[in-house]
């Protein structure tokens, strides 16, 4: 597998470590009155799409960037690669 790193270009997937669904960026608010349920879902409830799937990869043997890779689970085609930090900022995560 090849991941086309947004800063570094195509790199072998062997340089990366897989984590899982990119929804892990959306850590719930621990102050929410339903925090326990929200965290339960955050940790354990996953979609299993036949098609495009956004997932987190860490460029461990590279620039140490976390990436959000959009991969088609049917074809393995990778249609988009983004810096996870940019995605997180865009989704309103900050401090």
């Amino acid at each position: 597998m090849i991941i086309d790193h947004p800063l570094l270009g195509p790199r072998d997937a062997a340089e990366f470590v897989y984590l899982g669904d990119a929804c892990l960026i959306d850590r719930p608010d621990p102050g929410d009155e339903n925090a326990a349920r929200l965290f339960h879902d955050y940790l354990h409830i996953r979609d299993n799409p036949a098609g495009e799937h956004r997932e987190l990869w860490f460029h461990e043997h590279g620039d140490r960037s976390w990436l959000v890779v959009t991969r088609n689970t049917l074809t393995h085609e990778i249609v988009r690669v983004e810096l996870a930090r940019d995605v997180a900022l865009a989704r309103g995560r900050d401090r």
Binding site: L24, S65, W66, L89, R93
Partner: peptide, 12 residues
């Protein structure tokens, strides 16, 4: 920790 730094609290 890199995950927390880049994905959870990118503003820190």
């Amino acid at each position: 920790m890199e995950f927390a730094r880049q994905c959870l609290w990118p503003g820190l």
